[in-house]
Design a protein around this nucleic acid. Structure first.
Lengths: 215, 215
DNA sequence: ACAAGAAATGAACCTGGGTTCATTAATTTC
DNA sequence: GAAATTAATGAACCCAGGTTCATTTCTTGT
């Protein structure tokens, strides 16, 4: 034998992979999935088209991984808030607001990830993400209901509806180019809607203290 | 001159067009957009592939027209209830329930129309439909707010959130094959969610008298 | 330096399905 | 029934863009 992967090579490989993902993120971010052809991604990553296939078995895999990794952070944040301390309804409120505000900052990338028409594989990953979110929110609803802090209701339905309301509420603002000024208003509006939907007696616009804590 | 479109021919042409649309609806309905290739649609309509293009300039046009015409009825129904008599909040409740229940009956077609990944053109039409719905619901919210029947809120945001919550709430049930038994529960759950979201003081599960009136 | 792998390359290939268009079949008028 | 015009046909075309793979370039161990 006369070859063995050195740490150095290993590093370069990992770097290439990361570079590809980053390039894809950039392209999707400001051109949507349309712009992100394999050739373009490769070029942006400083590699040849074929090389992409040494790191990802197909374009779909690449895109799905991009989607997942990007959303993982968002889900983490929401999850962190959700499993924090305090009354479930407060955690719910904080989680909602955190998600909405972060999405409004994420801008075009968030839009592409959440809404842009895409292949079936990507759509599947998207559904999965929605389900994850719905589960977290649904769980909080269940907790709050158990604590008699909210009117009795099906947590699964509530979870799904919350996710739908959030995303659709975000859609408009995310799709068009808008001034970031009214972001705050939109965020507040969406959160207020969801909180009322869950049957809180309006300490709605109440503070969201530990949101900032989670970076 | 030696040819002129006779009423008879005119009729057959119209019939062909209708047949194409019907064929497309059937295919989409039980196979999703995937199954609805132009060739398949043509075959199902008893025509040759090329003939489709004498009636529709492109597949996208055909699909968009299918989408629009199918949703037009739904929007009509909602609109009719919305512009009926009585307090805005009651009309809102009725419109919500009507939409949700009809969607649950529409089944797979509704799913394809509302959610299945599709081309950009179709997605655009879809957005348009969502906007139309959001407008109607938003309008009702505005009315109700004006009548001090609901807490003050941005009707645009509320409209969008309502649509999102409804559709996402429907998504789960529509996507998988499910017993129609729990449809009622889902419908009730979604409607209840939305009504609470708007800040009604729960005459929520209240009757929906004139819903049935609109066929 | 050389052999033995591994990684990178990018032009050629492939494919599904929408679209076209030269040809044929139907209509209508005279 | 012949001419004129329109409708219908369906196999061939086209094309974007994902994938492949024979070739080249790098790395590593001896």
């Amino acid at each position: 034998m006369a070859y063995r992967r050195t740490a150095q090579v290993e590093t370069r490989l990992a770097d290439n992979r990361a570079r590809i993902l980053r390039a894809a993120r950039t392209l999707v971010s400001d051109g949507g999935f349309r712009q992100a052809q394999v050739a373009a991604v490769a070029a942006a990553a400083g590699l040849a088209t074929g090389s992409v296939y040494r790191y990802f078995p197909s374009k779909a895999h690449l895109m799905v991984e991009l989607l997942r990794s990007t959303c993982a952070r968002e889900i983490e944040v929401v999850q962190a808030i959700a499993s924090g301390g305090g009354p479930a309804r407060d955690r719910l409120a904080d989680a909602l607001r955190a998600f909405v505000e972060r999405a409004l900052k994420g801008d075009r990338l968030a839009y592409a990830i959440v809404a842009e028409p895409a292949s079936a594989e990507i759509e599947d990953a998207r559904q999965e993400i929605k389900r994850a979110l719905a589960l977290i929110f649904g769980g909080l609803v269940a907790e709050a209901v158990a604590a008699s802090d909210m009117p009795d209701q099906d947590p699964n339905i509530a979870g799904a509806c919350i996710v739908g309301a959030m995303l659709e509420g975000l859609m408009g603002p995310l799709a068009r180019d808008r001034a970031a000024e009214d972001d705050e208003a939109v965020a507040t509006g969406i959160v207020a809607f969801c909180l009322r939907a869950l049957g809180q007696e309006q300490n709605a616009k109440g503070e969201h203290a530990h949101v900032r804590a989670v970076r």
